[in-house]
Amino acid sequence: MEENQSPFQAAVKPGVTIGLISLALTFIAYFIDATLLGSAWFGLIAIVIFFALIIYFGRQYRSEIGGFMTFGTAFNFSFIAILISGIIGLIGQVLLFHVIDPSLPGVLGDLAFENSIKMMESFGASADSLPPGQLEEMRASTAKQFTLSGQLMGFGIGIIIYAIIALIIAAILKKRDKSLDY
């Protein structure tokens, strides 16, 4: 009889697969139009694909281990798969922003700043009402997101977000064997 893999072992292949798909979407968007990387709808599409894939692979793993999975097992599987895909995505973005197209962080930083100003204006605030120093500080902070240190810090914060996503997915994936209830 084949021995079941631990959640950590089982999460490696789906994590790599999801990471490579995420990386492919990023590069496709870059080659079509680099500003797509800063658009909200592209991010939304990527998140939907990401959730669908992790749930698909999680259900596949659950069926491999007998059709039932505890919350802890589902969380471990989800978190490791998400973490691995995040590492692959980080490596790809570092390559894209610092090797392939070093001017891209400036373009995306300007786009993020413009989007922040548009959002402020949609809430009734005017960019003209802010002191020039504060506008420059906003511009610098949005540009910093795309530096190497900004990307690494974003990944560190992302680990917390990955854990929250893994908790949600684990709640979806868990399935208790009710035949054991007496």
Rank of each mutant, 00 (worst) to 15 (best):
Q145I: 10
S22N: 13
S122Y: 04
I157T: 03
I168P: 09
L173C: 10
I169V: 13
Y61H: 09
F57K: 03
D101R: 09
I80S: 11
S126H: 00
Q134G: 07
A24M: 12
A29I: 04
I100F: 11
P102N: 10
V94H: 10
I157H: 00
L130T: 05
L90H: 01
L83R: 08
A163F: 04
I80R: 09
V99G: 12
S85E: 14
V12Y: 10
L95E: 11
Q9R: 14
A125M: 15
V99H: 14
A46W: 01
L25N: 02
A125G: 05
L167C: 11
G92M: 07
E3I: 12
I164V: 15
R176H: 13
F71C: 03
I161W: 14
F57D: 04
M69V: 05
R62C: 01
Q93E: 13
F27H: 04
A170F: 06
F31C: 03
Y30R: 11
M153P: 01
S39I: 00
D128S: 11
Y30F: 15
L173T: 12
A46N: 02
T70G: 13
S126A: 07
G124Y: 05
A125T: 09
I54C: 11
Y56F: 15
L95V: 15
P14H: 05
I82Y: 12
F68W: 14
S6E: 07
S126G: 02
F51R: 00
I28A: 15
N4L: 10
F57P: 07
G158M: 06
E136D: 15
I160S: 09
L36F: 08
K144F: 06
A127V: 06
H98G: 01
K178N: 13
G109V: 01
R59L: 14
I91Y: 02
I172W: 10
L104N: 01
T70Y: 01
M153R: 04
Q9M: 12
W41M: 15
F77K: 03
E137V: 06
F71E: 09
M153C: 00
I168L: 15
A140N: 09
L167H: 08
P7N: 02
L180M: 13
I55P: 00
I91L: 14
K178W: 11
V99K: 15
I160C: 05
S22M: 13
I157V: 06
V12E: 13
Q93L: 04
